[in-house]
Amino acid sequence: MSKIVAEPINLEEPDLLVGNEIKPLTIQDLAGHVLARISPNSCGWSHTQLLAIDIDSMAPDGWDAYQGDQWIGSSEI
């Protein structure tokens, strides 16, 4: 199942969005080729906005997602 994992699911996990809210979202295929780079709006990214992006349609064979240098999700999870 494809998933952006930026939001923590418990208190022990870090929120990967913190500090990266204004960085562009980069979608790469599993070979590391950039398929899309999406800039946030003027308020920055929210978890809801990230989850609303249909990354699977951009990269049906698999993907990794980054905000700046921070990995935030993958189709391989």
Rank of each mutant, 00 (worst) to 15 (best):
I4Q: 01
V5K: 07
E7V: 12
I9P: 00
I9N: 05
L11C: 07
E12A: 13
E13C: 15
P14A: 12
D15P: 05
L16W: 03
L16P: 03
L17V: 09
V18A: 12
G19Y: 13
G19E: 05
N20D: 09
E21A: 12
E21R: 15
E21C: 08
I22Q: 15
I22Y: 13
I22S: 07
I22M: 13
K23Q: 02
P24R: 03
L25T: 08
L25W: 00
T26A: 01
T26Q: 08
I27P: 12
I27L: 14
I27F: 11
Q28H: 02
D29K: 07
L30H: 10
A31T: 10
A31W: 04
A31Y: 10
G32M: 14
H33C: 12
V34M: 05
L35W: 09
L35R: 14
A36H: 00
R37N: 14
R37M: 10
I38S: 09
I38M: 07
S39W: 07
S39H: 08
S39V: 14
P40V: 01
P40S: 01
P40E: 04
N41S: 13
N41H: 02
N41T: 10
S42C: 09
S42A: 14
S42P: 02
C43S: 15
G44L: 00
S46K: 11
H47F: 04
T48K: 14
Q49G: 04
L50F: 11
L51A: 09
A52R: 04
D54Q: 14
I55K: 00
I55N: 02
D56G: 04
D56F: 01
S57A: 09
M58V: 00
M58P: 08
A59Y: 04
P60I: 11
P60T: 12
D61A: 11
D61K: 08
D61F: 05
G62E: 15
D64F: 08
D64Y: 08
D64Q: 13
D64L: 07
Y66G: 06
Y66D: 12
Y66C: 04
Q67L: 15
Q67P: 02
